[in-house]
């Protein structure tokens, strides 16, 4: 778990949470999520100190979250600031808006980028009315 952590990033906590949630999934649940997404996301997050951290969310085969560059080439690379990422993760901003306002840059399969919000929400239960 600590191997995923990068100090000085708000995004780090989010990623760690996501990782924990992934851990608690049963194999069947994980496969279901993989099936739903089918892609490798590479996240390049820049914090206020202009440092960059890279995580990979592999939802193509194994359903794992790693620190560092994607080992098979990522389907989409998403570049954004730490703030933008935490806003995306909390659901306060949606990916399309971030992309259109230039807060999020994407390389590769942009359509897949729209699934990022769903991936980030995947660990969270929705509140019921």
């Amino acid at each position: 778990m600590s191997d995923i952590k990068v100090d000085g990033f708000k995004a780090s906590d989010i990623i760690v949470d996501l990782h924990t949630a992934f851990d608690s999934f049963t194999d069947a649940q994980r496969q279901a999520q993989v099936k739903k997404t089918k892609g490798i996301f590479e996240l390049r997050i820049t914090n206020d100190d202009k440092k960059e951290a890279v995580w990979t969310i592999d939802l193509k085969k194994n359903g794992v979250i790693l620190k560092g560059l994607a080992s098979p080439k990522a389907d989409v690379t998403l570049i954004m600031s730490d703030d933008t990422f935490s806003q995306l993760a909390s659901g306060k901003m949606d990916g399309q808006k971030a992309f259109l306002t230039g807060k999020l840059k994407a390389k590769g399969n942009i359509m897949l980028a729209t699934k990022l919000a769903a991936v980030l929400q995947m660990a969270k239960d929705k509140a019921k009315l």
């Binding site: 909390s90 659901g91 306060k92 929705k126 509140a127 019921k128 009315l129």
Partner: peptide, 17 residues
């Protein structure tokens, strides 16, 4: 009250909810 809270929470306003 719960529905208001849930709507807020789903809108990313967990604190207010």
């Amino acid at each position: 009250y719960n529905r208001v809270g849930a709507t807020m929470a789903n809108n990313g306003q967990a604190e207010e909810a």
